[in-house]
Design a protein around this nucleic acid. Structure first.
Lengths: 163, 163
DNA sequence: CTCAGTTACTTGAACTCTCAATCTCTACGG
DNA sequence: CCGTAGAGATTGAGAGTTCAAGTAACTGAG
């Protein structure tokens, strides 16, 4: 609808460049760290964490996908892999025969406790140890805003017809 | 060396969670946007941009990899694909027979000019339009710090034996 | 000059992710 | 009840990424 593209200002370009670079390097760094120390990529680790935090260490597939911000398809493949490792198992949902629970096994929990300290350290060294408390706070606010704007379907998506 | 893991505080956990969520959603969003409108993932688009900005629209493979913060291997595969699309071509480096230039073709440049406005819009809508000028500035500073900390080998990496 | 070490880049296989089906089951208006 | 729209989850194929290994060419100490 808008003919004339609003380019990024020089300022904005620098910000965007820094973001892309940091995000790329960081994800890469954590992927390697976890692949080396825990035998799985960062996303998979995140799945185990979500399960560990959940009541009875279990979550419906769709819910887990929503929390982790990934597609159900991706989750299916991921859980299949984690199941092969013995870190997660599936169980049918009694109340909905279509449903499946992903459940963190004891072995999965063990991997997590064994590798969590190292991972936290990596995150600290890469991010928190380098930022002032104000910057940390600011980062949280900023990323929360961005995340909210990209949420697939807002809960109270009011008046969508107004944009 | 440190026995006692320094966990993230509740504050820090929230920040980290927001970061992961936003970064995941954002990369996903831009990947889809570019796959749909330009027929390539976000990283590949970034490669074309780097080339477009370079003198004579060309860059040595290693340099391109360094700018884009990806491995040479990944770049090799990526350029192979972009070559198939006719958006990039390779040329031998005369002064170093091991070397290769990746060169943006006219067709590649055309794709870029055709799709850049839409991409900029997507970035604006997802990020810049939602942040105050102070937040934008802050984001830039924060990400620059993080990126610098993860750079494979610092130029003046002084006294690495002291950590 | 020479050859051991390094740099530039590529390759193939294993793994992960995406996208478009597909399948089963639930919900519900008629 | 029946029929069907939609939800929950999986699958397979194709695309992308990683890791380890490989080739070829440069570099420099001796």
């Amino acid at each position: 609808m808008n003919d004339d593209p609003r380019w990024l200002s020089d300022q904005e370009q620098l910000v965007w460049r820094s973001y892309i670079e940091a995000a790329t390097l960081l994800e890469d760094h954590l992927d390697r760290q976890l692949q080396r120390d825990a035998g799985m990529p960062h996303v998979y680790y995140g799945l185990l964490v979500k399960l560990a935090e959940s009541p009875r260490r279990r979550l419906r597939m769709t819910e887990l996908a929503r929390y982790a911000k990934i597609t159900r398809s991706r989750l299916s493949h991921a859980v299949a892999r984690l199941e092969k490792n013995g870190w997660v198992r599936r169980e049918d949902c009694p109340s909905d025969k279509r449903g499946q629970f992903a459940i963190l096994t004891d072995e999965g929990y063990a991997v997590l406790s064994r590798t969590a300290p190292g991972h936290v350290d990596a995150v600290r060294q890469a991010v928190f140890d380098r930022l002032t408390p104000e910057q940390q706070k600011s980062l949280g606010e900023i990323m929360r805003i961005v995340a909210e704007g990209l949420q697939p379907s807002e809960a109270g998506a009011d008046l969508p017809w107004l944009r």
